[in-house]
Amino acid sequence: MKLRFLAVILMGCMTTLAGLAQASVVDTLQQEYKTAGAGPFSAAKGEKMWVEKHKDAESGKEFSCQTCHTDDLKKSGKHEKTGKVIDPLAPSVNKERLTDIKFVNKWFLRNCKQVLGRECTPQEKGDFLEYLKGQ
């Protein structure tokens, strides 16, 4: 009984912590983007960009974020080339998402280049985060 009680408390604490970490990472980044002149951020705009298709100049194939992350953010995706499994992106099912600034920055850089062929603007990144944090 005591153990179960302890487990519930611990899990509650961890969830809260993860939530806080996520909130702070998204806030910090969006604050950073605002300093760079962007904002306000819109989840609707983020979603629109998320599903938008882009033609790859070299292969002529069409890519969107959903190519790898699938159309359900709560599910696992797959790397388009290597087939490596990508954990769900929605913070509601994957507590680790949006909790590490370095990680978020790295993947913004890689994925924007992959799909758009260029780096994303602070405005775009802010919109993406606004959309993703609510998933």
Binding site: E58, K81, L109, R110, K113, Q114
Partner: peptide, 13 residues
């Protein structure tokens, strides 16, 4: 690693 900015099309950063 030298051409990590274009790692088979990806930027490893």
């Amino acid at each position: 690693l030298k051409q990590q900015a274009d790692h088979f099309g990806d930027d490893l950063a």
